[in-house]
Nucleic acid binder design. Sequence first.
RNA 1: UGGGAUGUCGCCAAGUGGCUAAGGCACCAGGUUUUGAUCCUGGCAUUCGCAGGUUCGAGUCCUGCCAUCCCAGCCA
Length: 555
Amino acid sequence: MSDKNVTENFITQIIDADIANGKHSNIVTRFPPEPNGYLHVGHAKSICLNFGLAQDYQAICHLRFDDTNPEKESNEYAESIKADIQWLGFDWGENNFHASDYFEQLYGYAEQLIEKGLAYVDDQTPEQIRENRGDFTTPGINSPYRDRSVDENLTEFRAMRSGEYADGSKVLRAKIDMQSGNINMRDPVIYRIKRMHHINTGDAWCIYPMYDFTHCISDAIEGITHSLCTLEFEDHRPLYDWVLDNIDIDCHPQQIEFSRLNVSYTITSKRKLNQLVENQLVDGWDDPRMSTISGMRRRGYPPEAIRNFVKEVGISKKESVISMTVLEDAVRNVLNKTAPRVMGVLKPLKVVIENYPEDKVEMLTGSNHPQDESFGLREIPFSREIYVEQDDYKENANRKFFRLTEGREVRLRHAYYITCREAIKDAEGNVVELRCTYDPESRGGTADGRKVKGTIHWISAAHAEPVEVRLYDRLFNHPKPAAVENFLDSINPDSLEILPNAMLEPGIVDQDKDVAYQFERNAYFKRDKTHETDRPVFNQVVTMRDSWAKLEQEG
RNA sequence: UGGGAUGUCGCCAAGUGGCUAAGGCACCAGGUUUUGAUCCUGGCAUUCGCAGGUUCGAGUCCUGCCAUCCCAGCCA
């Protein structure tokens, strides 16, 4: 991969051309969320694009809250958005703006449109406006108020601002073309009356500008050069341009649309995500199974992995669904290089090594990363009673099973060769303990040239630290849950598996909370936010590739 | 029988008329390995939605067709 944040795409080509031909000396981008919810992977794409482009061109990217509809906005959301962007590794510096910072200027531009005869106050009811807008095949009908005089419009609009009219009783509309094939151009509403407390301007206003009027002007005020948004705004671009062409402003940013990011087996609709939270189908917005940025953070995804993922996926105008495996691969790639290796037994099975002295404890040396010596070594206690993974024993196993079964010898990672002698079962026939013997000459895991195919992980029973481990699977069973009639029907009932009795090698529970570990042969894990020293909880970040699981499934 | 967009390998995605159609994921086959992990090697589109046409030469240009997505909030 290149050292750029954003690989070449049709947008960088436009930018390069604009710089080459002198249209711009450099770029200014912006990420413009409405603070009405939590950010998800889809937003991550936009953040990585806008901030990444700014870094690549040594330019700046603004964070602008698109707060024109106080109905759904809150400071809590705004704060979470900032935290998510920072966590992803981006910095807006001094450039945190709000559309509401421009309310006064916006109002001025609205009066300007009125003075030019390009906007009018409409007294029709919302229903009348909708009816007269027409539909895809029927042109709209001009409002009876469309030809009010400039003076009357000015008077009416000022009265709207000063609070003389009830909410919803009047709107300001741009006078464009009720016959347009593009419905956005059929005299779009640009101001509405809404008596509502605003998170930034309080009760200063009772009229609020609409997105289409606000966004382009905000971009222009800030000197944005390239205004990047998603495909559904393609139809709005003529309106974006119309507004800027018809007010007195000397900056005209270029709106460019790209396709949204969809990841298979996930959902990115704010409404649906909210439903999951409301119905307590997940543990809040940051549930590790959620596609929210806070969810991925809690899960343990490294921000670098998300950045790499977005970069890998690319930018285009094609509607697409990216396989979740691409995201997981990005996570594994980072974790493989950064995660210290430790041993953790998820489903413990006790093993007694019959020929090992009862009270002996010896310290064995293990490497913290087999491919990177800089991770150093650690001492691991070994004793007569250990735990191994339940799945590492199988009765009547065939030759392909390189693990424990009666009479088979395996290597204990960093320790000794042991041979399984007998499985002890309870009354129901469940294997509850293994009796094994070890080869004292094989300390460290090497012996005479005997070939032992299998190496398994283990933990000294007396030294094991009990932890709760949470395993995650996809939240939905359907690759495109949003396409299912009722997306809740496609929820995977087994997306969370709690293992309350996992065992971890000593010395890990109190380590740095920001470290993700590889529990060798299992998966990558990271502390959950609820983790306490006396009640440790680890989340599975992502499994490792498992070709054995495939073989086993095939039989 | 409105307007806007998109169609290159199972999923993404380069390609901007001229050598054998990049790369990643997935998949398959080998090798190394004290993680059935990692790593390494090799295989994975005679063909670019379809049909015509222009050209010495087309995924790239033209015409027609087909498929899919978005738009009728006083949401963004």
